[in-house]
């Protein structure tokens, strides 16, 4: 069965390592914070100027001066730090953030990502996404494998305006885990109960399938 959003987040959480500084984008990526393995210390970065994002506040703790990049109220954990936006993006651009997880509309077999603009629909802006994908050391995309009408989102070439080029390292979808290699997408794992054939059928870009493909452990 294809994974739900929480399943995707749970699988991505397996990519975390103790001591990682991680930036989680809006949507499914935010859910990854709920699955950080017990005993592992991971510091979450928010591009509006916070290292050490804590859980949502209780009603009494809500503070308008303390929000995340999605403009939601959050808390700051003991040992966190605040800083301005230039400093925040220096952390990203300077390669100090170990892992970035973000959503996407489309990813190409070359690792290009489209995530910010759909022509004909209103343009809201790229926010920090272009800075993140252009500079992060390790980028994992969390997304649905296909659109609601069944069209593949893993393409030969992105059709939508790009956020960045040749930057995606790994993709976790509701159907599969794949990494980007020079030849295209390489299938690493499949969602429980999902067949390799189903994944091939749902992938328009070049997909490398080598040997037995294990099921994800989620």
């Amino acid at each position: 069965m294809a994974l739900d959003k929480n399943g995707i987040a749970k699988r991505i959480a397996q990519e975390l390592r103790d001591g990682y500084y991680v930036n989680l984008g809006i949507g499914i990526p935010t859910l990854v914070a709920n699955y950080i393995p017990e005993g592992m210390q991971v510091v979450l970065h928010s591009e509006n100027g916070l290292l050490g994002i804590g859980p949502f506040p209780t009603e009494d703790e809500v503070d308008p001066d303390l929000i995340n990049a999605g403009k939601q109220t959050v808390t700051a954990l003991p040992g966190s730090s605040f800083f301005d936006s230039a400093e925040s993006f220096a952390m990203i651009r300077g390669g100090h953030v170990d892992l970035t997880v973000l959503g996407a509309f489309e990813v190409s077999e070359k690792g290009d990502i489209a995530s910010w603009k759909v022509p004909g629909k209103l343009v809201k802006g790229m926010g920090g996404a272009m800075d993140l994908v252009a500079a992060a050391k390790n980028i994992i995309v969390a997304m649905q494998h296909t659109s609601k009408d069944g069209a593949s989102k893993l393409l030969k070439e992105c059709t939508l305006p790009l956020t960045g080029v040749r930057c995606v390292k790994k993709i976790v979808t509701d159907l599969a885990v794949m990494e980007l290699v020079p030849e295209g997408f390489r299938l690493l794992e499949r969602a429980p109960g999902v067949s390799v054939e189903e994944i091939i059928a749902a992938t328009e870009g070049r997909l490398m399938v080598e040997g037995e493909i294990p099921e994800m452990n989620v």
Partner: peptide, 10 residues
């Protein structure tokens, strides 16, 4: 100091 998205936990 209006808040755009108030998100809380129990």
């Amino acid at each position: 100091k209006q808040i755009e998205f108030v998100t809380t936990r129990e």
